[in-house]
Design a protein around this nucleic acid. Structure first.
Lengths: 335, 335
DNA sequence: CTGAAAGCGCTTACAG
DNA sequence: CTGAAAGCGCTTACAG
């Protein structure tokens, strides 16, 4: 019932080899033969069996997007969809599909990875988050399997990756507050095992030091990328006897929670507290007041990750291992 | 370099057939042999080649998520990530991966579909949106390829699908406003070619008729699922000499735009205008005031779509072709 | 420019 | 309980 290359060959009066060559646009096939074979393929409704093709060509035209263990919170964030959009858009331009796997538990990460790699299910892997001492990065690097990191690796700085200059971005955000006259600035960070949190905190500290301002431990809070985190952080922060007048916040959704927390406690933004956050997702524009945020071009990060990985797989990548996507401050009413 | 079934067989002193049987837990294999083979597989780091397996078994353990043409706007909406989360979570429970394809243009939809189906790339397909007269549904149905619709089909009512009772949901939402004493109620709808828009509008009209209230054409606006749509709709609606006092809105993100529009025009919610919308995404809780919304259990829709499709593929699905996920009204300050 | 043949890494009747 | 053999649908040297 399914029509194979043999059926086409028979109907066209040629050999299977010839049909295969027509499909792959082999140069040494006569125009006449190629046309005839193509017509027959159309008539019979031929479609190449991708598994068979993949078995012999060792290539799948598929990119794996690896969702690290607690993938749950990832999905709650607007940037996830935006990443995927960039990845899928660029991939389909080159005829690649995207395979998504989530692994059941953290200890199964390597075996989930192995299923994809050794099982020849994908040609390369996109890693969505960069954790410190990430075993997944270590493993992929050891195996010499094509992969790209969104973010960076401390242990393997030369690994293929697409990233922002998060230290600089956070420095810029903090400087913006300092220039606005703030001297008491706190930092609401994300999970400390994420390199992202780490880098942004570093940029904040740099700016503070450079301006000769005090970095207070009790004004630095490390939490999840969740709205509740920001909300809870305010209960803590606003009950201090000495409070900051401005906050740099690691992610929009956290800033959103902060806004809610402040609102409930009866504080005004930006009068009582200025806010600047990261990612510039739709949330920042939608909230009231709209939140200043550092645009990190999420779509672009995904798009370039796809592109550079594909080029690497095809052996045509000539760029630097690290691609830095520029950021820019989008100032709104919260500062 | 890659270790195959043959290498394992040689090292274990058995035939490839036996190794294959051990892998698939064939019942008639002696415990001793199975254990030895498993040990060797571990030692050698054997992983089955999925392409080879798929070629002979005609099965891929992959579900395709088909993103219909203008996929762009889909990604902007919070429900997209939530759908995917439900789909991926359930799929990975049964060892299935998710393949995402977007097709370059609308006319290529069928050929993109064919690549997946005839190319034996996926075992089944999940359709994320239901359009009226959807050629994709028609084609999949003709081809008898396993697929599931999130939503419903007018032409093929018995097609496998997971849906809400959108007519009832919208009826309930409208009735809620009516019970609150509103008599002048408008409806902000989505793209008319989506069945979703259609069903929700129908429920609105039913409730209005039943309550003996007037349905005014100029109080029904059909727009995209975008924030700007809601925003723009307010410029139109609020410039009318006779205005509604409440709105049923097809999607949260549109309601969000409406909120912004009303705010800028100097109107208060719910004093000047009550709002109830659909989907109950994070936006509704985050906006100020928080928006009443109909929770449609997006995660559950995705989860069940995955589940029912997998069961259908495996021939064990015994349920009705249509699964209706219950909705419930989440009332907040906007009504 | 084209064909016959071998092989990619599996599975599965068939036989014992 | 296990093995030899054929075959899934392709590609690709090798030969002409």
């Amino acid at each position: 019932m399914t029509v194979t290359i043999k059926d086409v060959a028979r109907a066209a009066g040629v050999s299977p080899s010839t049909v295969s060559r027509v499909i792959s646009n082999h140069p040494r096939i006569s125009k006449a033969t190629a046309e005839k074979v193509r017509r027959i393929m159309d008539e019979l409704g031929y479609h190449p069996n991708l598994a068979a093709k993949s078995l012999v060509s060792k290539t799948t035209y598929t990119l794996g997007v690896f969702l690290p263990r607690p993938a749950e919170e990832l999905f709650l964030n607007l940037f996830f969809a935006e990443f995927i959009r960039g990845i899928v858009t660029r991939a389909s331009k080159s005829g690649y599909d995207i395979l998504m796997t989530s692994c059941p538990s953290e200890q199964d990460e390597i075996s989930a990875l192995n299923r994809l790699m050794s099982g020849k299910r994908v040609d390369g892997i996109i890693l969505l988050t960069s954790r410190r001492n990430d075993p997944v990065v270590q493993y992929l690097n050891e195996q010499q399997f094509p992969f790209i990191l969104i973010g960076r690796s401390e242990e393997y700085p030369d690994v293929l990756s697409v990233d922002n200059d998060n230290v600089q971005a956070s420095y810029d955000a903090t400087m913006h507050l300092i220039k606005r006259g703030h001297t008491r600035i706190g930092f609401i960070s994300g999970p400390p095992h994420l390199i992202l949190s780490h880098d942004r905190k570093k940029g904040y500290e740099q700016a503070m030091r450079e301006a000769g301002l005090e970095i207070r431990e009790d004004w630095i809070i490390e939490e999840e990328f969740l709205q509740e985190s920001g909300y809870r952080a305010m209960s803590i922060l606003m009950s201090l006897s000495e409070r900051p007048s401005a906050l740099v916040v690691v992610d929009d959704i956290v800033a959103f929670g902060i806004l809610r927390g402040l609102h409930e406690l009866g504080y005004q933004v930006p009068q009582d507290m200025s806010l600047i956050s990261f990612n510039n997702t739709a949330l920042t524009e939608l909230s009231s007041p709209p939140i200043s945020s550092v645009d990190i071009s999420i779509y672009q990060l995904g798009y370039l990750a796809s592109q550079n990985l594909i080029h690497t797989i095809q052996g045509s990548y000539a760029g630097e291992p690290r691609t830095i996507v520029p950021h820019r401050l989008i100032l709104r009413e919260s500062t």
